[in-house]
């Protein structure tokens, strides 16, 4: 556990010279990036630049694509997650994920939250865990009277918060969010962004977004990615969000945030 004054400086997860290939196609190229603990880091860039690929490389979700492989390192808890003796299943419990489209299980709201904890051997008070997770995801008040209704009966925004609650319930250290608000209306989007600000007290958040305003509003740090001439994604700039949007160092970043690219 870190001392409070270290928050904002301690590194939660770090990619070093990371490359991801799909078959012979290099999707991202030599990305090095340090994600700060209990901060929100946004990854932005035009579509197809490898943002999602980078995000999914951080908890080895890429491996679900049969032809995908990675080279380089991602250091988490002092270990390279691509080492042979790392267990991807355990890794994914520590680094949770929220997807672009809300994807609750076709089960009750309660089961949606409880399931992940149960398969990970949670032996504590399940009712309390579900309530706490739903409260942290700011969904409790809306669903406390219908915990046994299907998760699919909720609205899109509620479903996405349910997915966040589900991720929280397995006590991850990091939550990866892959354009979590892109399928939602503006009000639901706003609520997710507010929620993220509260969640960062307990969790490190990495969010991919194609919405620059969202990155500017909601994140502490921003990484900008861009395709090179081989269509491989590269990180061209990384810095504190305010600084990056006010005074971009890279010409392409400036073009992108002023709308000249993408």
């Amino acid at each position: 556990m870190s001392a409070p004054d270290a928050v904002g400086n301690e590194i939660a997860i770090q990619a070093q010279e990371l490359n991801v290939y799909y078959g012979s196609f290099r999707a991202i190229k030599d990305v090095s990036l340090a994600i700060k603990r209990h901060q929100i880091t946004a990854i932005i860039g035009p579509s197809g630049c490898g943002k999602s690929t980078l995000l999914r490389a951080l908890n080895r979700m890429n491996e679900l694509v049969p032809t995908a492989r990675a080279s380089g390192q991602v250091v988490f808890l002092g270990q390279n997650i691509y080492d042979r003796d790392i267990d991807p299943v355990e890794l994914r419990r520590r680094i949770g994920m929220v997807f672009q489209k809300p994807n609750p299980f076709p089960k009750s709201i309660f089961e949606n939250v409880a399931w992940g904890a149960r398969i990970n051997g949670f032996r504590g008070d399940m009712d309390a865990l579900v309530e706490q997770s739903l409260r942290r995801a700011a969904l409790w008040d809306e669903v406390k009277d219908k915990l046994h209704q299907s998760g699919l009966s909720l609205s899109g925004g509620q479903q996405q918060r349910l997915c966040i609650a589900r991720a929280i319930a397995v006590r991850p250290e990091i939550i990866l969010m892959d354009e979590p608000a892109s399928a939602l209306d503006p009000i639901a989007t706003l609520r997710i962004e507010e929620l993220m600000q509260h969640l960062k007290e307990n969790y490190t958040i990495v969010i991919v977004t194609h919405n620059m305003q969202q990155a500017a509003r909601a994140s502490d740090w921003t990484a900008v990615m861009m395709m090179d001439e081989d269509r491989a994604g590269q990180m061209i700039e990384f810095g504190e969000t305010q600084q990056l949007f006010m005074t971009p160092r890279d010409r392409r970043t400036e073009d992108y945030i002023t709308g000249r690219i993408g």
């Binding site: 808890l77 003796d85 790392i86 267990d87 520590r94 051997g121 504590g124 008070d125």
Partner: peptide, 10 residues
């Protein structure tokens, strides 16, 4: 509740 173990392969 949740057991805290290393990332090692189980």
């Amino acid at each position: 509740g949740v057991a805290r173990t290393s990332l090692g392969r189980r």
